[in-house]
Design a binder for these strands. Structure first.
Length: 271
DNA sequence: CACGGATCCTGATGGC
DNA sequence: TGCCATCAGGATCCGT
């Protein structure tokens, strides 16, 4: 599920509510992608200072250290007071003075990792290679074009790679390429500067719109208050194979790139 | 060393 | 109803 918009929507839905909380207890369910990296008792008594986001990671700042939370393919965070009993896919729980935070993740591709600081080798391993934040000032059309010139693979793959820009996953890569009129199979280094600028703008627009719409809920995404997103209803190409293009009515085409589905319009995206 | 592919895991879905 | 194959929002690791 979670690309940048879903992670940001999650953050917005609980960051203010958890800030200042005291951690009373922490517990784990089944193993996630990586071990927590500290004892559960280490977390007890710490305060939650706030929640930031880097790429698709949530960074939960604590009075000593921080937690890096990744939602993988199927993860979602919930935070509140009146909760049902833990379900079998709740694999991490923090009971705090202001509510209980849970990570539910059926496929367990997600992770919760403790780091003593952002310069901790553990944090650096996960965050160190991430590219520029697409919704920050640092994401700039000229340098984005320069980054694309270094890559000889299909532009869709480069967007998913997270080195030229972070946070764009399978849904929003297809959507941004449609908005920019660029075919997903085009080699990244062959994209001209003006067309890179179009794509740069499209990425910002698509991600911003998706955050406003509460993210995309295809199956199981919900924010920390349990609310679903609605961007999937606005999708121009994603998951619309065979359906008419919303612009020109040509049937949307579906292909596979690197084991992932890609959707595009052969008429609106010619190169 | 840039790239493509296999891989981790569970659940939903569709064909037979 | 069951069995099997395929697919799903991610990202790392490994071989070429």
């Amino acid at each position: 599920m979670p690309e940048l918009p879903e992670v940001e929507v999650t953050r917005l839905s609980f960051a203010d509510r958890i800030a200042g909380a005291r951690i009373n207890a922490a517990s784990l369910g089944k193993s996630l992608r990586w071990p927590l990296g500290c004892g559960l008792q280490k977390l007890e008594g710490l305060r939650v200072l706030g929640v930031r986001r880097r790429g698709k990671y949530l960074l939960v700042d604590l009075s000593d250290g921080l937690l890096l939370i990744h939602l993988g393919m199927s993860g979602s965070v919930s935070f509140g007071n009146d909760f049902p009993a833990r379900s079998k896919h709740d694999h991490f729980e923090l009971v705090t003075s202001l509510g209980t935070l849970r990570l539910n993740d059926p496929r367990r591709f997600g992770a919760v990792v403790f780091a003593s600081s952002e310069s901790d080798p553990v944090a650096h391993k996960l965050l160190g290679r991430l590219g520029v934040e697409p919704l920050s000032e640092a994401f700039e059309a000229t340098s984005f074009h320069q980054a694309l010139r270094l890559r000889r693979t299909a532009i869709k793959q480069v967007l998913l790679g997270g080195e030229a820009v972070v946070g764009v996953g399978n849904i929003y890569a297809s959507e941004a390429l449609f908005m920019a009129g660029i075919r997903p199979t085009t080699k990244a280094h062959r994209i001209s500067k003006p067309r890179a600028a179009l794509l740069h703008h499209a990425i910002q627009q698509v991600l911003t719109q998706a955050v406003i719409k509460g993210g995309s809920t295809l199956r199981d995404f919900s924010n920390a208050q349990g609310e679903a997103g609605h961007f999937q209803l606005d999708a121009m190409v994603y998951n619309r194979a065979g359906l008419p293009c919303k612009v020109c009515a040509t049937p949307i085409k579906s292909i596979r790139q690197g084991q992932r589905s890609t959707f595009y319009c052969v008429s609106c995206q010619k190169r």
